[in-house]
Design a protein around this nucleic acid. Structure first.
Ligand SMILES: [Zn+2]
Length: 122
DNA sequence: ACTGCCGGGCC
DNA sequence: GGCCCGGCAGT
């Protein structure tokens, strides 16, 4: 528990108080069902590795070797590909909402660092 | 109030 | 390099 935050204050932005580990079970992250069993075993459903977003972070991504392929003449009329509709954010459930602030340890690195989630891509 | 992310910071 | 927060946009 002490060896959690390597900096100071040590707080969860919103839960700016202090979250103890407690005996686990039942997480007050949602007044509904689900979100009750998960911190036990991982999904282990392989990983949907998709070269999407392709931001510029270095996390665990193997980083593509650069396709290198551009005919001199693009940069105009982007087909706006990649799934026409974007999530309304309210529907997008990323590490934070899924696991909860009390289980930040289960978040992906990006979420822990308040960066673009790399596990639940959008 | 809350999530999700960029920009910026520290070691 | 990893690690994290302030502050913002969006809901
Ligand atoms: Zn994540």
């Amino acid at each position: 528990m002490p060896p959690r935050h390597r900096r100071l204050g040590a707080s969860f932005g919103t839960c700016r108080g202090m979250f103890l580990a407690l005996p686990s079970f039942q997480i007050p992250v949602s007044p509904h069902i689900y979100t009750s069993v998960s911190w036990a075993a991982a999904p282990s459903t392989a990983c949907s590795l998709s070269p999407v977003r392709s931001r510029s972070l270095s996390f665990s991504e193997p980083q593509q070797p650069a396709p290198v392929m551009k005919s001199h003449l693009i940069v105009t009329s982007p087909p706006r590909a990649q799934s026409g509709a974007r999530k309304a954010r309210g529907e997008a459930k990323k590490c934070r909402k899924v696991y909860g602030i009390e289980h930040r340890d289960q978040w992906c690195t990006a979420c822990r660092w308040k960066k673009a989630c790399q596990r639940f891509l959008d």
